[in-house]
Design a protein around this nucleic acid. Structure first.
Lengths: 204, 204
DNA sequence: CCAGTTATTATACGACTGTAAAACAAAGGG
DNA sequence: CCCTTTGTTTTACAGTCGTATAATAACTGG
């Protein structure tokens, strides 16, 4: 009946690879941010979610800030993947690809009412951490470049790519922000319709 | 030489009215959020900024969350005032008024690179506090209603006011967000130009 | 099987948090 | 001048934070 019970009750554990642990912690971080917000996300919450003890975080990352930074990088990579998938699924028509790229932000996995908390965490750090600011700048530039390419394929003159890419990016960001802040104002379908209307207004 | 020195060194203080103290604390909160971000804003930071001791906050507000909520309300009131001023300064031309309303967000006092931290604090609470969510909803609806009125004055058919108001609001929010996140991507002038171009594309 | 390596747990630390409440003193009125 | 009211300071508390580190044990190779 008492077989296997330790007097000191230290938990048994299994060793995992460095990659496995880092990935688990990154995923746990994203989940905690999304579900608990910035205020509820702590070393203890993350490690509990990852199924490890709190001291482990500092073994694999320089600190909790470094972990959040890596999580941001991971999130951006996933977003890139989602955008590529959306465009590929749209088929060969340039207009359809542009609309797919533009409206991907209003669908899972990019849009989820929990994602605002995640982005709030990242934005908080962008102003304070040059590495995060650089990540943000690169990501934003890449997104706009993707839009510019698709606008070009739709016959928009090259001289207009830059401004229109900024404009459409801003429209998408603004719609996404309100969608996550308050999904009752308008829903994903309406956001898609608005973005599509913008595209059709602008295309030659 | 030792005249006026107390043995226990308790600080001298002066009494102020309830209104004065509440207003001081609200202003101190906005300043702390803007300059120190969410992570750096605490009861002690706010009260130091307001020139009072930390225990005073709980005398005048139910807690730090209630203070931030009031500060949000105050911020929204100030924004309303700034929008009204911008429109009044634009003169009687409907197009000029619409553009003034739309571009006010890219100029002080609405746009300031420190304001992102303030909005991040508010957004964090919108998802958790129904009163804050209600404030947000009312504010957003009022902003859109203002736009719809100005669009109407410019000859836009009534049936289009709703969608166009959402679209322009989103564009402004998205431009504002990027402007505060990274002012090097494009500046206030370029944001104003983009918003103005949208207006002229849409007006009959 | 044993020894060595190192992933992991457990624990402690200093610092900070928001809140609570006793003590003090500013201010006004009698 | 004295007393009362109450705004304000001071101090304490319980709790949480991220980090550091000693101890333990999982695992592999000889």
């Amino acid at each position: 009946m008492f077989k296997g019970i330790r007097l000191m009750n230290r938990v048994t554990f299994s060793r995992e690879s460095r990659d496995f642990r880092r990935t688990s912690l990154i995923e746990a971080t994203a989940q905690c941010l999304a579900e608990l917000g910035v205020a509820g996300t702590s070393v203890r919450a993350i490690c509990a979610r990852a199924g490890v003890s709190p001291g482990l975080l500092r073994h694999y990352f320089d600190g909790v800030d470094a972990l959040i930074s890596e999580t941001y990088r991971d999130t951006l990579d996933r977003l890139d993947g989602a955008l590529e998938s959306a465009v590929a699924a749209a088929g060969p028509d340039p207009r359809a690809q542009l609309i797919a790229y533009a409206t991907a932000s209003f669908r899972p996995p990019i849009s989820d009412s929990h994602m605002l908390a995640t982005w709030i965490a990242y934005w908080s750090m962008v102003k304070a951490d040059p590495a995060m600011a650089a990540l943000h700048g690169e990501s934003y530039a890449a997104y706009r470049a993707g839009l510019a390419t698709l606008l070009g394929a739709c016959g928009v003159p090259a001289a207009e790519h830059g401004e229109l890419a900024i404009e459409l990016t801003a429209l998408i960001d603004g719609l996404w922000l309100e969608l996550t802040l308050d999904p009752t104002t308008f829903g994903a379908d309406r956001a898609c319709a608005i973005a599509t209307r913008w595209v059709d207004r602008v295309l030659p």
